[in-house]
């Protein structure tokens, strides 16, 4: 690893004519330089390869659904023939009832408050499975704020995020979590500003989540038309919330 500066200069296109000539000639005779350059290129490609990460996420979701389906199958088969028949009849009746209830719930229009509450519950699952592993990578203050948030101490967490944002005004991560605190403190105006700030940034890991919670805030504050247009956008994207967004669109009055 002795060519780091030269390689970066080369990749940044900052070499002058003679440096470039020398670099190219060294590439012909120094296999280690070639390997290092390949590694730098691979790092750049990998960092940009969001489609791979997205595809893995989709596979994980498909596997989760598959596991849930498998569990249902396993629990519906047991015992001898009679028992099996009885189980089948019972299961069919149950399935029909569930199907009926499902159809009813799918197509029944719900109030904005009902939709908001129903969809907010899934947040805690999202949080524990998706965000928590990133703790190790965060600044200590931010980490402390998130821990307070996880413990349900939303006011304290929000104070920490505010303080952090005072020193790091462009930090979308803190702004996103602060938005979530505002949601749980029923301060939807502030939550909307926080999520909009995240979405206005040119890049943030949290944009997908911010647009989802922003839509929920618009639902809660009865800005139904704005929420609908945002949900349409989410449902048309490759977002992990697209199915949920489509479902809500069917239920909104």
């Amino acid at each position: 690893m002795k060519h780091l500066d030269r390689i970066q200069k080369y990749l940044d296109g900052k070499m002058n004519e003679s440096e470039l000539k020398k670099f190219r000639s060294d590439l012909q005779k120094d296999p280690e330089l070639v390997e290092e350059l390949d590694l730098h290129r691979s790092v750049n490609e990998t960092v940009l390869s969001t489609d791979e990460i997205r595809f893995r996420k989709k596979l994980e979701e498909a596997y989760k659904t598959y596991k849930i389906d498998g569990h249902k199958e396993n629990t519906s088969v047991s015992g001898n023939r009679t028992k099996l028949k009885r189980t089948i009849v019972f299961s069919s009746a149950l399935m029909i009832t569930l199907l009926f209830l499902f159809i009813l719930s799918e197509f029944r229009k719900q109030s904005n408050d009902e939709i908001f509450e129903a969809n907010l519950i899934s947040f805690s699952q999202d949080f524990t499975s998706r965000f928590q592993p990133e703790f190790a990578n965060q600044d200590q203050d931010l980490q402390e704020g998130i821990k307070l948030f996880v413990d349900g101490k939303y006011s304290d967490a929000s104070r920490v995020f505010h303080q952090f944002l005072g020193q790091n005004p462009d930090n979308t991560e803190a702004s996103f979590y602060n938005g979530l605190c505002m949601v749980f403190l029923n301060e939807f105006g502030n939550a909307i500003s926080a999520f909009e700030f995240v979405l206005a940034a040119p890049y943030s890991y949290y944009q997908e989540y911010a647009s989802w919670y922003l839509a929920l805030c618009y639902i809660k504050t009865n800005n139904t038309e704005v929420a609908k247009s945002l949900l349409k956008e989410i449902s048309g994207n490759d977002s992990s919330f697209s199915d949920k967004a489509r479902r809500i669109l069917r239920k909104l009055r």
């Binding site: 960092v47 390869s49 990460i53 965060q138 991560e173």
Partner: peptide
């Protein structure tokens, strides 16, 4: 190799990740 790169990338602090990205 990409898995390995990603693994190390995710071990960086969030500022470093953003900066590189």
């Amino acid at each position: 190799k990409r898995k390995l790169i990603l693994e190390h990338f995710l071990e960086l602090g969030s500022d470093c990740q953003k900066l590189i990205h």
